[in-house]
């Protein structure tokens, strides 16, 4: 431990105390609140099974919203990422696109949802639009980063044949980054289902709408049914995407590993 490190740790601790004071973070309140949690849990145990079909239907709507949002967002991201990749474009192309993407990313999905509820009214469509925007901001960044890590040797070799830029993208960039793109698509779908589950909080459709309303009226037993369905769905999707990843993506990446000495 150098004196410099001690000072740094001291500063961090001081900041922690000041910040906690500013946000009223009081551990005693937390401990006092524990019995309340017990009450909620106890209420939640009174699950009302007759709500299960409604909950499943609401979850199905949520999945569809996430699905449309992910696919459309991904389809828009792909050409954008080709324009944002530094190894494919000049500064005058990628710099403005990157600035736009950074601006899109500053909004979390719930803020996009509020914006679209104002624009197109309450309902799932606003939620879908929010997911599309969020996916564009996020996935494009992942994609152009994947494109920039492509080995420059095949690119140079194919470029020296005198192909057009479109041919280069179609025949080198996409095949060489396909496994990354697929894994990002899965990851984003997985993540978007979780996100879409809460968009109902601002009236943008999906299962969150039910959860927030039951909680508002202290009907924890009903809310619990819906939360349980979210939990089970997320676990299933998680499990499925791990399987898909193992089967297709890991295999092809292993193939690439074998070839790069």
């Amino acid at each position: 431990m150098t004196p410099k490190n001690n000072i740094l740790i001291g500063i961090i601790v001081a900041l922690l105390v000041v910040a906690s004071y500013n946000v009223d973070a009081n551990p005693i309140e937390f401990i006092d609140g524990l019995p309340n949690l017990a009450i909620v849990v106890e209420e939640m145990l009174h699950v009302e099974p007759k709500y299960i079909p409604t909950a499943i239907w609401a979850m199905f709507e949520t999945i569809q919203m996430a699905f449309i949002g992910t696919i459309v967002g991904f389809a828009i991201s792909l050409p954008l990422s080709m324009l944002a990749a530094r190894n494919l474009n000049s500064k005058y192309v990628y710099a403005p696109i990157r600035a736009l993407l950074a601006a899109i990313r500053t909004f979390p999905s719930i803020l996009w949802a509020i914006l679209f509820v104002i624009m197109v009214g309450l309902g799932p469509f606003a939620g879908v639009l929010a997911i599309i925007m969020y996916t564009i901001g996020f996935v494009t960044k992942l994609q152009y980063e994947a494109i920039e890590t492509i080995d420059s040797d095949p690119m140079d070799a194919v470029n020296s044949i005198g192909v057009s830029k479109w041919q280069l993208i179609r025949y080198v960039v996409i095949p060489e980054s396909a496994s990354h793109l697929l894994s990002q698509l899965l990851y984003m779908f997985d993540y978007n289902i979780r996100q879409t589950s809460i968009l109902g909080l601002v009236g943008a459709g999906g299962i969150g709408f039910y959860i927030i309303n039951y909680i508002k009226f202290f009907e924890y037993g009903k809310a619990a049914v819906f939360m349980l369905v979210v939990l089970v769905t997320v676990l299933i999707i998680d499990w499925v995407s791990v399987k898909i990843r193992d089967k297709y993506i890991i295999k092809s990446q292993h193939g690439m590993e074998v070839t790069t000495k």
């Binding site: 040797d153 095949p154 140079d156 025949y171 095949p175 060489e176 690439m256």
Partner: peptide, 9 residues
């Protein structure tokens, strides 16, 4: 090129 520059997958 020295590295052949083939597309592996």
């Amino acid at each position: 090129p020295q590295s052949l520059g083939l597309i592996k997958n």
